[in-house]
Design a protein around this nucleic acid. Structure first.
Lengths: 109, 109
DNA sequence: TGTATAAATAAGCAAACGCTTATATAATGA
DNA sequence: TCATTATATAAGCGTTTGCTTATTTATACA
């Protein structure tokens, strides 16, 4: 890992909304439309954050019908450190469970 | 540590020049004029980087005559993680020892 | 004193960032 | 086939970033 790679990696996680996204992903794989609810953000804004996280190889995507399911990339060399960093952050107020309660949780069969 | 604090902390280290500065500081306390040699950078550029690192409480400064000696803030809660991150980065090509060899090492008595 | 040196600060600038709105693409299902 | 839904992409905009040059402040020393 050289200085430029490390800079790219750290810049990718140096945003409070992307940290929230990563925090959610430690518990669940989620799609863009769920993040728009969880973060109260527009769809393009979430989409652009995911593109940055993907470019840094922090997340992986899997197409399922019309949804794209995003997951943490557990194979990343700095994954353990990321998990530790995220463990220092509080649980978000809006939970994935509350999504389910409102019928907003996406279930791909 | 909330999301905004973590964002500020990560943004402070998300720069390859500041990572280099921090890497040097893991071995030695140094002053601005030494960093200008080590990083081949102008004095104001280094000074502005130190201001950012200080704002994030990553470094401490001590005035000694006309020099300001900068050190890592070992009391920072994320200091152990920082050390780990820096350990993943290669040793810089220009060393503090080479400064001394060229008579550029500052010695405050 | 006056001069040299170390560092901080200010203003300016190009590039990157995080968002917006508008639009395009692709899959679903009536 | 056509409308709906999920996502991606594009263009634009205000803010931030990392540098530059110029200047100021402060200390050391002949």
């Amino acid at each position: 890992m050289d200085y430029v790679n490390m800079e790219s990696y750290l810049k990718a996680i140096s945003d409070h909304n992307r940290m929230l996204i990563l925090k959610y992903l430690t518990k669940d794989s989620l799609c863009i439309c769920e993040f728009t609810e969880l973060l109260d953000m527009t769809q393009p804004a979430v989409s652009q954050h995911m593109r940055k996280l993907k470019a840094a190889e922090l997340v992986t995507e899997e197409k399922r019908g019309r949804w794209t399911i995003w997951s943490l990339n557990v194979r990343h060399g700095l994954y353990p450190m990321l998990i530790h960093l995220l463990s220092l952050l509080p649980e978000p107020e809006i939970t994935v469970e509350s999504l389910a309660a409102n019928g907003k949780k996406v279930v791909c069969e």
